[in-house]
């Protein structure tokens, strides 16, 4: 994996965001506990991705992009750590993390827009994953910033249905261990 330069902020990400990679017990209601904590303490969540961690059914990993403007990161981590089902929290500063996100979009096509759409997709490095005579579904797996760019580029097309997963992240190799 080649290191990515930190691409800075975009319109979709907060000015000072942090990525919390949170290992939690895979139990009913854990996500509600996390969401409830953020809501009642007034911490903003920008994105959230949840999936079972590694091969263990016992734990899940929650990747939360938080707005470090809405509350001091120390408070967010300290309060999160008090949730009994939270096992470990890794705080990844954006510069120290490899972040990836998946974008899926279905765009209605016609003879007038097909060429410019293919150019847009090629520029973004997006792949076509489904087609029918009047539409294509495309996919981009990349940095959140590259997903932002494709999303903006697709704004010039009408009839776009777009989904993003929210990012997942791991520490950048060769960096000091995150605190």
């Amino acid at each position: 994996m080649s290191p990515e330069p930190f691409l800075g902020t975009t319109s979709r990400t907060p000015v000072r965001h942090h990525i919390l990679s949170v290992l939690v017990e895979n139990k009913a209601g854990v996500l509600a506990r996390i969401a409830g904590l953020f809501a009642r303490r007034g911490f903003n969540i920008y994105s959230l991705a949840v999936a079972p961690a590694e091969s263990h059914a016992r734990f899940s990993r929650v990747t939360i992009v938080v707005d470090a403007e809405s509350a001091p990161l120390e408070q967010i981590v300290g309060q999160l750590d008090k949730l009994v089902n939270v096992v470990a929290i890794t705080d990844l500063a954006p510069a120290d993390a490899v972040e990836r996100e998946l974008l899926l979009a279905t765009i209605q096509t016609n003879t007038a827009n097909r060429t410019s759409l293919l150019d847009t997709l090629a520029n973004a490095g997006a792949a076509i994953v489904d087609v029918d005579p009047g539409a294509v579904t495309v996919m981009l797996a990349g940095t959140p910033a590259s997903c932002d760019q494709l999303e903006r580029a697709l704004e010039s097309f009408s009839d776009v249905e777009l989904h993003r997963t929210g990012r997942v992240a791991l520490p950048r190799l060769g960096e000091a261990a995150p605190q």
Partner: peptide, 8 residues
């Protein structure tokens, strides 16, 4: 005992 109290 509760670290979330620091700097709150």
């Amino acid at each position: 005992i509760d670290r979330a109290e620091f700097n709150k």
